[in-house]
Write a protein that binds this DNA or RNA. Structure first.
Lengths: 225, 225
DNA sequence: TCAAAAGTGTTAGATTTACACCCATGA
DNA sequence: TCATGGGTGTAAATCTAACACTTTTGA
């Protein structure tokens, strides 16, 4: 292979994943304690190094698969983090990604296996290096994304009640919403389908279950929330 | 130095700059023909490699300074681009940044010196590698940014007419605006100050010149456009 | 029977959009 | 004197936000 740029320095490039979940009406993030130096024992995002034969996006997908055993996860890039001293060991530039998963789909044995756990977004401990910065930026991006695209469904089971959906939006936006106004807006979205199924886990009366219809959404691009 | 991650591969990391300008009522981008292999002669963004002793952001600032001779340029990260084959020579991961500069401040001799020129955003030729992807993403980010923050002033001279400002917003958003509605909104923004100066270059009657007052803006954070 | 969550409409206010004419000046 | 760009207000329509009571049912 011809070397074109041989006068320049190479660095390690890693990916770090901000994995969002939603449970008990709270926004959650999957973090664990670092098992290696530097920073052993500190709370940290789950990450990995980019290999020469994979794109940075693929490295992130691979890392997510390692941790969750899931494919087809919704994932978006947060950005590159490249301070000189961000990693105390050696020069490492990291590309952060956020992912949205349904906590109920997650194989709980993997939590222990990888030493990670779901932590309330509002109660996060200090994180290793610049990971908190990544989390905050990811949360902002996600909040903006959910305003124009129905990505929130990635955080919910296939069937959900309108109250669950509302709590999700409240958790993401950090503010309470009016029930009637919320349901009015939902009713205008044809891609949120009411089923005949009733969920009785959270009330005696029971609440109708809804589902997100991707086909209808893809055909009818007037979404707004 | 202790080597912590020695089993992993290192790659070259570069920065690429999407430099936006505004002239003749058009949004412009500063691009040039590549002077090195691979891709010699193709239209390309201006870029450079990240050094070991500087952050990625600093590499972008340094690159911008090299090209423009200007400091304190408004600059934001677009994201990391990391396909395996994005650079035909060797594995290079690039972090793109967009910058906003006032074309009139730009020392025109530097254009020739670096072999770059201002090209209409709407008439861009095909670009090297994934550079067009970077430009499109940058433009989307910039368009969203300008909706909530007055970054547009970075593209204008200190003193500008309301028509210039309107044309700028039209160019960025790609749609025409109603003159009266536009001026009504501007009038509500105390940080856009009318001066007693008149510009006669574009009309016989002359138009009042306005300026952006950063201090007023910083104190009064109710911006919306 | 009562506690707890589900479900349902209306109205006032704020925001947004559409729209047309007079003004000042230099050529 | 006229062509050119500068400058100004109002009204209709749309969107947003505030607000309270009835229903169902298991404990």
């Amino acid at each position: 292979m011809t070397i074109f740029y041989n006068e320049h320095s190479k660095v390690l490039v890693s990916v770090d994943c901000i994995i969002f979940g939603f449970d008990e009406n709270k926004l959650k993030v999957l973090i664990g304690k670092r098992k290696m130096d530097p920073g052993r024992g500190e709370w940290s995002l789950y990450g990995g190094f980019v290999r020469l034969d994979e794109s940075v996006d693929d490295a992130a997908y691979r890392t997510l698969y390692e941790l969750t055993g899931m494919r087809n996860i919704y994932m978006r890039q947060v950005g590159a983090f490249g301070s000189v001293d961000r990693d105390p060991g050696e020069r490492v530039i990291s590309v952060a990604y956020y992912a949205l998963i349904n906590v109920k789909d997650y194989d709980h044995r993997l939590l222990e296996e990888h030493g990670v756990e779901w932590v309330d977004f509002d109660k996060m401990p200090p994180l290793y290096s610049d990971h908190m910065e990544m989390v905050k930026k990811a949360r902002n991006l996600m909040r903006n994304k959910i305003k124009t695209e129905p990505v929130g469904f990635r955080l919910l089971p296939n069937l959900f009640t309108l109250t669950q959906l509302q709590r999700l939006y409240e958790a993401v936006n950090g503010e309470e919403l009016d029930k009637r106004n919320f349901r009015k807006r939902i009713k205008e979205m044809d891609f949120i389908e009411k089923t005949e199924l009733i969920d009785k886990t959270s009330s005696k009366r029971g609440a109708y279950l809804y589902r997100f219809n991707r086909r209808v959404y893809d055909e009818d691009p007037n979404f707004k929330l």
